[in-house]
Every structure is written in structure tokens, then in C-alpha cells.
């Protein structure tokens, strides 16, 4: 099942990890892929550890949970340290530069994305770091198409926040282009 790709988004509650996972999975379904998505978080709604795992395949997925990540996104140091060793050698880690100090000894491709910084400074809103990261993820991995993400944003984000989220997504894609170059 080489066509299977497993993505783990991680951080803490309140960072929009679950929403980013929803958009990613929704985009996959819109492209005709088979997708499974599951989340886990602590009992409190804000602040505790949080992850969203999405599996993509061209065929029906038997075991729906992530077994080993092709892609890890870490939005916090805690999340990074918990999951950094559960990534395939051919995989990739995207971490939030400024929130995570990466372990350079890992034998995996790692890219720092200034998601929170861009969100705060360029978009004047700390709530869209997740979407900036999503943009970088889509640009650097091609896991789904940008068009599908835009459709997913139109479906799941309340109208009054759509422009902001689209802007954040495109900022993230730009960032992805730069760091991948």
C-alpha cells in the first residue's frame, strides 16, 4: 500500500490542530481520495496536548488510525518531543519555528515554518497559525491540492473568517515555497 500517506498534526488545545486536520481530510475527500481522520485531546478544551491524524489512500482504508507518520507537523515543543521519532525515514517534519527547537540529529527531513510569527505579525491574528502551517504543508508535500483546501475552507469556515483564512493559507504557501527552495 505504497500510495497510503499518513499525516500527524500536533500541538496543544486552542491552536486549531483539529480544524487544520478537518480541512486537510475534507480536501482529500473532495479530490476523490479515501481518507480517515481521528483526533485526540485531553479533557480540557484548551491548553492540553492535542493531535489530529489523517490517513490518505487511493483504496479503502482497513485500519483507520495512523501507524507511522509520513508527515509530522509539530506546533509545540511538547508535541515535537512526543512524536519526532515516529516518522518514516523518507518522511518529513514541519515544525513551528519560534515554538520548537528541532533535534538536528534526526535522520529525517525537517523544515521550520514561522507559522505563529507570520500569523501574529503579518495577519495580526494569532488564531490562524494553523492555517499558515497548512499552507506550508500543502506547498512542501503536495498531499492535497491548494484548490481542494480552498473549497474545504469555503465549506467549514464561517463566512466572516473565510477571507482571513484564505489569506493565511496563501501566506503559508509562500512560506513553503521559500523554505523548500
Amino acid at each position: 500500500m505504497s500510495e497510503m500517506r499518513q499525516v500527524r498534526l500536533s500541538g496543544f488545545g486552542g491552536q486549531g490542530i483539529v480544524l487544520a486536520g478537518l480541512l486537510l481530510g475534507q480536501a482529500g475527500v473532495m479530490e476523490g481520495k479515501y481518507v480517515t481522520g481521528s483526533n485526540s485531546y485531553g479533557a480540557q478544551a484548551r491548553g492540553s496536548g492535542c493531535k489530529s491524524e489523517i490517513v490518505f489512500s487511493d483504496h479503502p482504508i482497513h485500519y483507520p488510525h495512523l501507524i507511522i507518520a509520513d508527515i509530522l507537523v509539530a506546533m509545540s515543543q511538547g508535541a515535537y518531543q512526543t512524536y519526532d521519532e515516529e516518522v518514516k525515514e523518507s518522511g518529513i517534519i514541519l515544525y513551528d519555528r519560534g515554538r520548537v527547537v528541532p533535534n538536528m540529529e534526526l535522520n529525517v527531513k525537517q523544515l521550520g515554518v514561522s507559522a505563529t510569527e507570520i500569523s501574529l505579525k503579518k495577519l495580526k491574528n494569532k488564531q490562524v497559525a494553523n492555517i499558515v502551517m497548512l499552507g506550508a504543508l500543502v506547498e512542501t508535500t503536495g498531499i492535497v491540492s491548494p484548490r481542494a483546501i480552498r473549497k474545504a475552507i469555503a465549506l467549514h469556515i464561517p463566512k466572516r473568517f473565510q477571507a482571513l483564512n484564505l489569506k493565511a493559507f496563501h501566506k503559508g504557501m509562500e512560506l513553503g515555497k521559500q523554505i523548500n527552495a
Binding site: 481518507v35 481522520g37 482504508i61 488510525h65
Partner: peptide, 9 residues
């Protein structure tokens, strides 16, 4: 819980 919270096609 696992099926109730799972997202899928």
C-alpha cells in the same frame, strides 16, 4: 468512541 469520532468518506 473510535467510530463515533472517526472522520471518513
Amino acid at each position: 468512541e473510535a467510530i463515533g469520532h472517526l472522520r471518513e468518506n
